[in-house]
């Protein structure tokens, strides 16, 4: 069943390709597993008919943009657009080379949360439907209803930018967003209440299971360095061995390197195969940046990037 918004997307994408306004379309198509989508990167106008939009479009497709030459049409949710804007600010992308097809997003459903609540894996569930502020899960004809804020992705709960500002084509009007910043930062709050040593122990235990697959970095649109510091060998800034110390240093440094560019889209946390709560790092970083410099990543394409700008008087209380 194709929704109205999907029909519109497909015709828009087909038209863009047919009229030569873009050379490539980047969107989502149905994946090979239940409730899973997969990026569709195509030059073929016929493939436009495979484009989908649903509450499971978890990928931040802006990560693909810089590697595709020519003009690209990209299907983007509000948070993805912030990443695109951030790339434009950093001159990694020229505004005229992207056609932003804005998707109103009411929040992405977190399958891990649903699995936990249901005590079942995703492939054992029959249906998951979002209805306004509720999510209804069906298993063997029995329905279970959850408040949307219990099953949306943590990053989505912190979304305060549902209104899409930067776009070329908008597929629909505003979507209703369920905002719950408290829920989004529940782990952060818990950690902040701890003494520092206990916080350190917490993060240490998280990074003990990191396998250094670098999926967090690879799916991150803000991590666009051609060569990452972890791959430097002369000098080797950190050890490539997956020791917790170096795993932690890798991630902490990565977070600091993307400060002001990271939009807390949550792609890194979703990609992590061993479930390290990276959103609780990226969100905290976004909060620090906001608090210190009143800066929000990817909200103004004409603004100087955070680390390229300065005020003559700021943050002086931290320096002797």
């Amino acid at each position: 069943m194709t929704s109205k918004i999907e029909q519109k997307l497909r015709s828009v994408a087909r038209e863009l390709l047919e009229q030569g306004k873009v050379g490539t379309i980047v969107g989502y198509e149905a994946g090979s597993l239940k409730f899973t989508n997969t990026p569709l990167i195509t030059k073929d106008k016929e493939a436009a008919d495979r484009l989908v939009i649903n509450p499971f479009i978890i990928n931040n497709l802006s990560v693909f943009l810089k590697d595709i030459g020519g003009k690209v049409g990209v299907v983007a949710k509000g948070c993805d657009i912030r990443s695109i804007v951030s790339l434009i600010q950093d001159k990694q992308l020229a505004r005229e080379n992207v056609v932003i097809i804005g998707v109103p997003c009411a929040g992405i459903i977190d399958l891990d949360k649903i699995e936990k609540l249901m005590g079942k894996d995703r492939d054992e569930l029959d249906d998951i439907v979002r209805e306004n502020d509720k999510v209804i899960v069906t298993v063997q004809r029995s329905k279970k209803e959850y408040p949307a804020k219990d099953v949306l992705i943590d990053s989505c709960l912190a979304c305060d930018q549902p209104k899409i500002k930067e776009y070329d084509i908008l597929l629909d009007e505003e979507a209703t967003v369920v905002c719950d910043d408290e829920a989004s930062r529940s782990l952060i709050k818990k950690l902040e209440a701890m003494p520092p040593a206990q916080r350190w122990e917490f993060w240490k235990s998280q990074f003990e299971r990191c396998i250094r697959c670098y999926a967090c970095r690879q799916v991150c649109p803000a991590c666009y360095c051609k060569r990452c510091f972890v791959e430097e060998t002369e000098p080797a800034w950190i050890s490539p061995l997956p020791k917790w110390q170096d795993n932690l240093i890798f991630q902490v440094t990565r977070m600091m390197h993307v400060a002001g560019r990271c939009t807390d889209c949550g792609a890194c946390e979703r990609a992590c195969p061993v479930g390290i709560p990276l959103h609780s790092l990226s969100k905290k970083m976004a909060e620090i940046v906001q608090e210190l410099f009143e800066y929000q990543a990817g909200t103004d394409k004409d603004a100087l990037p955070l680390m390229a700008a300065y005020e003559s008087k700021e943050a002086e209380d931290l320096i002797r």
Partner: peptide, 8 residues
């Protein structure tokens, strides 16, 4: 095209 070159 859609591979992100991670090690998973």
């Amino acid at each position: 095209a859609k591979c992100v070159s991670c090690g998973i």
